[in-house]
Design a protein around this nucleic acid. Structure first.
Lengths: 154, 154
DNA sequence: CGCAACTTAGTTGTGCACAATTGAATTGTA
DNA sequence: TACAATTCAATTGTGCACAACTAAGTTGCG
């Protein structure tokens, strides 16, 4: 009794999407260990990276960089504010917008974060070039999936 | 003033881990659309895949297949039970263990899930061979990261 | 100028991920 | 057999992701 093609897909498929899911959580696990000293979670670290690079930003722009919406960012930024790393202030120029900026403590945190990336890269056991290629492939995958999701919703 | 090497890493690193994070969420988005009809979330779908393949399993074993712990699975399985797709019953042979099995409704759901994988594979725009290769690479990445996390914690 | 449409952030609710703890039951060992 | 160690699930608490909705403010058009 041969396994039907669709059922075979069902198994293969689980392994593909599942691998991505697992890799994402595995990354998270390593970051959790490395960021504990800094008092940051991985998504909080991403926010800090963007702020270290770009300085003061409205929440909207921050979300565009990270592909996160305000429902995720609002409470996250409140926690970063409570930790003393950022300040939030409604823009004077456009009162719809809330500006996020680093505090002095938050700015200083950067120097302690500098050692994280190399340790992460080391943890993967991948060469830089291989990481670069993987990233390119994942970005292409993400773009295709986003496109597909848009079409499917209509 | 040249950018220090560590700072350069800081940017590159963000893009690598970030790509993975984004791809995982993008997959989630497509699954959300495709699974809405079945009344399943993506992690619930994973649980159903394992049950369709292996039949009745203790929660512990289910978690090993999916790399999820009981803190995640317990409430998830309660929701699947409330939806009428699974039953939970404490094992008679070993009363520490709770067995999860499909209900008739849950078993029948499989036929409606059969079309999902092909649509997902299509949404990626990747050839089957490319998906296979990506999966292998991600699995290797996950193994390395898990290994690193174990060492770092000590 | 005034109002409708839009933009933006916040809030609320659901669900997943995971750490830490609890409690119950089994197993191994003296 | 009795008890200590282990196993396992559940619970609790924190944080992220996202959808749906609210509220407030701005912009653009008539």
């Amino acid at each position: 009794m041969p396994t039907p093609a669709e059922a075979e897909f069902l198994r293969l498929d689980r392994q593909i999407c599942f691998s991505l899911h697992a890799a994402s959580r595995a990354f998270n696990g390593v970051y959790r260990v490395l960021l504990k000293d800094l008092g940051l979670t991985y998504p909080q670290y991403l926010v800090m990276l963007v702020l270290w690079e770009h300085g003061e930003l409205p929440v909207k722009t921050l979300g565009e960089h990270l592909r996160l919406d305000s429902g995720t960012l609002s409470p996250l930024l409140k926690r970063l504010e409570a930790a003393g790393y950022v300040q939030r202030e409604r823009s004077a120029a456009d009162e719809r917008s809330v500006l996020v900026r680093l505090t002095e403590t938050g700015t200083e945190l950067r120097s302690r974060a500098l050692r994280v990336p190399r340790r992460i890269a080391g943890a993967t056991g991948f060469e830089l070039e291989e990481l670069r290629e993987l990233r390119a492939r994942l970005d292409r995958l993400t773009a295709a999936l986003d496109e597909a999701a848009r079409h499917l919703e209509e």
